[in-house]
Write a protein that binds this DNA or RNA. Structure first.
Lengths: 220, 220, 220, 220
DNA sequence: GATGAATGAGGGTTCATTCAT
DNA sequence: TATGAATGAACCCTCATTCAT
């Protein structure tokens, strides 16, 4: 009920014999999409399975054909939303890198793949519900954070070159992601009061980093 | 919030300790402290009033003598924890300012007043539960964000001087706070897997900002 | 009970292809019947939903599938029990009327349709709980009293004829109903101490009225 | 909690030594008066001891110095309000009686002593809460009904004389009281929609009875 | 005696989960 | 497979009653 095993919440897709497999997968996706909508709007606890079912266009009981319980639904939601990103993190980094290029790619990727999609809500959900779902936090750490941090660190190392003054960044790659986090949270909480221009924010962030580091690395 | 101990708030003075008013205020604080512990650990919805009562060393019904309902308890928790910070934001800024000094003060204040206290958890709660408590989000925006952002912006303007290259920062003061947000979230979610050294993070952050901006302002 | 009236705003019996609808209506009726039993025995406030559920043979939560809350259950109880009577009040009165015939019909109707059924308890509940349920009192006034009083008055007018001495009755048709009220209350409160013979009471009442009025109208 | 013994709810006035006795009695009365107000307005169950205390101008705990519990308060309320009436019922009936005189006295007594006072509310409370308070119903039956019915019956017997046609009344003295009951209930429930003129109602009632009986008794 | 803060059992209501259809 | 009526454990909140002051 409160938490399943550490990480082993593999979905139980049950057998969907014959050609119903497609339909079945579509349903599963519809449920996940509906769950994201509802969880994002009201949080995990305040969302009723009934709401998810209604939004997904299925009956309440149907959800239990695809997910063991509400917790598993949440786990799968996070897992399925983040898998593509995880896959990206696995990719071997390209050969030549400049800091400007790296920051540009990271920023664009964030804006395009996360902030511009509903993954933004998944990230926020992970941050919000994490304390209640240690296994989700652990999954997110293991699959995303523990991979992204070293990966970015390695890319940075190559981008700023040995001896350059980017030690601060190399030591704390989190500094690169921080504004993205702010953007996600701001939009969810304060957008109705004051809009925060993400692209501007990220551009200003990159500009500052480039000044701080490139100056060092681009000496005469 | 007054001052609750680091971890154990078992306050069960069954006897006749003091005057009613003092005792009443102490009880209120004990309840708020207990509520913070519980809300921070499990989130608002998953916390039972009974748990708060037990941790505060009072009966369930007693909580309703001090707070109208669970929502009001949460509201008061946020309000009382953030009031001191709000008061600080009201203070007239000092006369002479350097960017280094400003960043140092902000960082130290953050570490001492927020990250080093349970206010860190309150901030995280506001971010987590905000979508479910529009009024809390609004309170936080109005009283904290909407004051802090312009205040920091103004201080920055004075610190970097006209014509200096700190426009990015002046336009997006959120960039200054971003790493603090990361620190708060990281500690709550990932600290058990990997520690994030806040002071180091903040120092690196400041270092980068100083390089990015001072270089501009101190050119030949 | 068993007969949900025509005018009842049923909660929502949900659709179920075949036998479901019947079963649903049966359940609704069972709950209403159980509620009447319990409310009549202990009053609205002292009755627990749990008791109603147990007596109806359903789970507590089931009641909330059929009625929004305890208040709505009470409202529906009154409404469904009184609808048939209201329907009768709508009927056009027959052509020729004698006072004896009128009193006989009214008495028999009362004994058969109210005193001989559990509607007697519903009436008593309305009287007892009315002050706490203004809307129930209003419903009862609008649908029953405000129709019955003029209807009886009109019938009386035709039965005693112009000039006859029945002005008292025509002005206060409540006098005709008064003993019925006494019968209902007496049975609920004092029957265990002393039985009140309803039929005798009503017969004596009619006899008195006939003597008082007919004497006037049938003088030599 | 739900019901005390048959009738033994004698108050426990505790000793109020010295001159405090008067003050004590006044307080007791104030509490009873407040209880009547509140019970009449909302019913027994929906009335909070806190409400009674506030209206009585005493602290909540004080009520428990005068009454064992909420039930006892209700018992005492009924008892104290009805005692004067009970006393009247004990009085030896006067010598010579006419039906007209009897009805006039009864009516005037009802209007003056009950309908014109808050005893009206007590009567209604007894009728409303009776099923939940068997001992109150029993008290009311024993002390009021079981005395009033035979008393009125005896008076009637003397008023209409042997052989007269008032057998109906003699057999069912309840018929005399019935309109009074209607008046009490009507006022509580329907007065806001339509006023029922008590005096007119009672006068019409008496008129009818006199016609029905005197005609018989005053033959040539 | 009076007070009213504190108590905690009790009950209305919700909602995740089950299961007969 | 899909459904949604039914279940009942859980939890918020109330309020009669107590008791330290």
């Amino acid at each position: 009920m409160s938490e399943s095993g550490s990480g082993g919440n593999a979905a139980k897709p049950r057998k969907h014999p014959r050609g119903g497999a497609e339909r079945s997968a579509a349903r599963r996706d519809a449920i996940l999409a509906a769950a994201l909508d509802e969880f994002a709007a009201a949080g995990f606890a305040a969302t009723r399975i009934d709401d998810v079912a209604r939004r997904a266009g299925v009956a309440k009981g149907t959800i239990y054909l695809y997910f063991r319980d509400k917790d598993a639904l949440f786990h799968e939601l996070v897992r399925s939303a983040l898998s593509p990103i995880i896959a990206v993190l696995e990719q071997p980094p390209p050969g030549e890198i400049t800091l400007r290029g790296l920051l540009g790619v990271l920023t664009q990727t964030f804006v395009r793949e996360i902030f511009g999609t509903r993954r933004k809500d998944v990230i926020r959900l992970v941050l919000s519900e994490g304390p209640r779902f240690p296994s989700v936090a652990e999954f997110y750490y293991r699959e995303v954070v523990a991979r992204a941090v070293p990966a970015v660190r390695e890319l940075l190392r190559r981008a700023v070159g040995p001896g350059a003054g980017g030690e601060a960044l190399v030591t704390y790659p989190q500094l690169i992601v921080a504004p993205a986090l702010v953007a996600v949270m701001w939009e969810a909480l304060f957008d109705r009061f004051e809009t925060l221009e993400v692209e501007g924010l990220m551009r200003a962030h990159c500009e500052l980093l480039l000044r701080a580091v490139e100056v060092k690395g681009s000496g005469p």
